[in-house]
Design a binder for these strands. Sequence first.
DNA 1: GATGAAATATTTGCGCG
DNA 2: CGCGCAAATATTTCATC
Lengths: 159, 159
Amino acid sequence: MLQKADLDALDWKILRELQNDGRMTNVELSQRVGISAPPCLRRVRQLEKAGIIRGYRALLNAPALGYDVVAFCLIGLKHQADAELKVFAERTRNWPIVRDAWMVSGESDFLLHCVAPDLGTFQGFVIEDLTSAPNVDTVRTALTIRKVKEEGLVRIGQS
Amino acid sequence: MLQKADLDALDWKILRELQNDGRMTNVELSQRVGISAPPCLRRVRQLEKAGIIRGYRALLNAPALGYDVVAFCLIGLKHQADAELKVFAERTRNWPIVRDAWMVSGESDFLLHCVAPDLGTFQGFVIEDLTSAPNVDTVRTALTIRKVKEEGLVRIGQS
DNA sequence: GATGAAATATTTGCGCG
DNA sequence: CGCGCAAATATTTCATC
């Protein structure tokens, strides 16, 4: 199976292009990275099989869909036993406003990436759902003003 | 141009499927949502043209690529004048460790989503780059333990 | 929204560097 | 051993109803 060390510059070029446009046709991809289509497709399939490419996803425009509020919530729990953490993690999966959630270490226990139609809905979620959920100690929120960077993974270090 | 209100249940089904697998062929997509291929493709193209689908992207497996550390940084600046905010935003774009960055309101001014090969690299970034950057006041970090949710946008509310 | 045909892309096998 | 070429297969796309 493919390992990180096995990736050459061509593989990283492929990854860069597919992160930019995951629906690019294989022939266009092959032209961009400078090889012909068949070996290009073989590399892509290998990257997929090795799990390096986890999948492909359409990106949606939240404001165009009526979701004007994007915010992050930092949650501190009262008790951090393993079972308690799992309970809260499961809870985040049932809140449609929460798009991504991470268990973190530091001052907080969870970080939630939230999207809501308007401020009222988000505030309602914070007050009625988050703050009043069992075992929740602290809730700090950061409303986003704008996204200033959104990029895929790149090779750090060599060349 | 397509507006949020114009989206029917079929459009949302399409969006859900393409968020799950952005490389699905149009014939498979059409079967999943229960219509024939041409009208399905027409809807997808409209969603793209309206900017509701912003693009497509391959998702990479960071650990498999040797990126074991994922963390969030909350940055407070000393001065938050518009020009200063722009300078810091531009700075985030030049740090390869920073994958996504948001300007936020609240206790902090920026939130950075960071990925690094190892803890030493991340700590080096925090100390040498972040903390010592001009105008940076406070840096709080939250190392992620694991991702507990990662989902696309869904329709909140009706049906 | 469905049907069928034309244009294009993907995929496979085989020879070459 | 992996790359490039060319034919078979599948998909996207456009006309029309």
